[in-house]
Simulated assay, not measured.
Amino acid sequence: MTEAGADLLIVDDNRVNRLLLARSVELLGYRASMAENGRAAMDMLRERRFDLMLLDIEMPEMDGFEVLEAIKLAPALQDLPVIVTSSVEGVDNIVRCIDLGADDYLPKPVNPVLLKARLSSSLEKKRLRDEQATLLKRFATNEVVQDLQKTGFRLGGRRVHATILFCDIRGFTAISERQSPEDTIELLNIYYTLMFEAIDHHSGIVTLMIGDGLMVLFGAPKPLENPAASAVAAAQDMLAIVEQFNLEQAAAAKPEIRLGIGIATGEVVAGFAGTKQRATYTCIGDKVNLASRLEQHTKRVSRPILIDDATRAAVGPEHPCESLGAVDFDGFSRSVAVFAVGSQ
C-alpha cells in the first residue's frame, strides 16, 4: 500500500455526506468506497482489504460504536486505522471512540485541511506498522509474531507441556567438502524450505538454526492438543519429503541427504531469552537436552527417528514404534527408554 493509492472505506448513513467525503478523499489521491451503515461496512471489511476507514457514529442497524467494538474483536481487522467523522458532540463520546480503538476524531462538517493531515498521519502509521509486521515475520514464525502482538515483548518464560524435535543432516560435513560453498548454501536453503513446509504444516516453530541443525518446538507459544503426535507426524513428513528430494538429486548426479531426528516430550520453560536489544524465542529444560541426545543417537543405531517414552505414550498406536531398550546418555542420571519410529 502506498499512501497516495490507499483504499478508504467511508461509512455514513447520509448519502450527501458520503458523496462529499468521497470526493474530498479522491481529490487527495485516495480511492474511496462507501457503505450506508455499520452492518454494510462490516460485510465489506470481511470481503476485501481496506487501508483506512472514515466512520460516522449515528447510523441505523449498526452504529459507529458497535462497528468499533466489532473491529476490536476481529483479529484480522485490529490494525485497520479508523477516523471517526461525526456531529456527535461531547468529550465523553470522543473518549469512548478512542477507547474502542479509533485513531482519530474529526467533527462534522469535516475541515478539508484537517482531513488531509489526519489521513496522511494515520496512513503513515499504518505503513510503519505493516513494515514492522513484515520484518517480524521474516525473523519469527507467525505464532511468535502473534504472541508478540498480543502480549508484547518481555524477557522470561513460562512452563508449558511441549515436544521438542531436533533434526540434523547425516554426514553434512562430508557433503560440504565435496562441493563448492555456493552449492552447499543452495542445498541448505532447499533443505530449510522443505523442512519448514513439514514443520509449519504440523504447527511447529523453528527456534534454532545452526548450519544443518534445526530445533523445533511443538506446543508453544500456541498450545496444541497433542504436541507429541504433531512432532512425530512432522518428522515422518520430513523423511517423506527428503525421499522425494533425493530422487531429484540422484537424477541430477547431486548428493543425496539423510536425516536424523530426535524427539522428546515434557515440561519446558518457553519464552524470550537474551537481552532487550537482541532476543530469541526458545525453550529450556532437560527435555530439550534429551531430544538433542536422541538425535545424536540416530547415528549409532542407524534409525532416522528416535523418541522418548513420554512421546511414545502420547502418540498412541497410530505411530508404531520399536523399543530399542534403555540408553545411558551423558548428563542424565537415569537410563532413558528409547523407541524408533517407522516412516509412513
Rank of each mutant, 00 (worst) to 15 (best):
A228W: 05
A228V: 04
A228H: 05
A228I: 04
A229S: 14
S230E: 13
A231S: 08
V232W: 06
V232C: 09
A233I: 03
A234S: 14
A235Y: 01
Q236V: 09
D237V: 08
D237F: 07
L239A: 02
A240V: 13
A240T: 15
V242D: 03
V242E: 12
V242N: 12
Q244N: 12
F245A: 15
F245N: 12
N246S: 11
N246A: 10
N246K: 04
E248P: 07
E248G: 15
Q249D: 04
A250N: 02
A250K: 13
A251K: 14
A251E: 13
A251G: 04
A251L: 09
A252S: 13
A252C: 07
A252Y: 06
A253Q: 15
A253H: 15
P255C: 02
P255Y: 04
P255D: 07
I257A: 08
R258T: 14
R258Y: 09
R258G: 13
R258C: 08
L259K: 01
L259W: 02
L259G: 01
G260Q: 01
G260M: 06
I263L: 07
A264R: 05
T265P: 07
G266L: 03
G266D: 02
E267C: 03
V268Q: 03
V268K: 08
V269C: 09
A270D: 08
A270E: 08
A270L: 02
G271W: 04
F272G: 05
G274I: 02
G274H: 04
K276S: 13
K276V: 13
K276N: 14
Q277F: 10
A279Q: 11
A279D: 09
Y281A: 02
T282E: 00
I284M: 10
I284E: 07
G285I: 08
G285Y: 02
G285F: 01
D286E: 13
K287D: 10
K287T: 15
V288G: 02
V288Y: 00
N289G: 08
L290I: 09
L290E: 09
A291V: 05
S292N: 12
S292Q: 11
S292D: 05
R293H: 07
L294C: 06
E295M: 10
E295C: 12
Q296P: 01
H297M: 09
H297T: 05
H297A: 15
T298S: 06
T298P: 03
K299Q: 13
K299I: 10
S302V: 11
P304F: 08
I305Y: 00
I305P: 00
L306F: 03
D309G: 07
A310F: 07
A314V: 00
A314P: 01
A314N: 03
P317Y: 12
E318D: 15
H319I: 01
P320F: 05
P320Q: 05
P320V: 01
P320M: 04
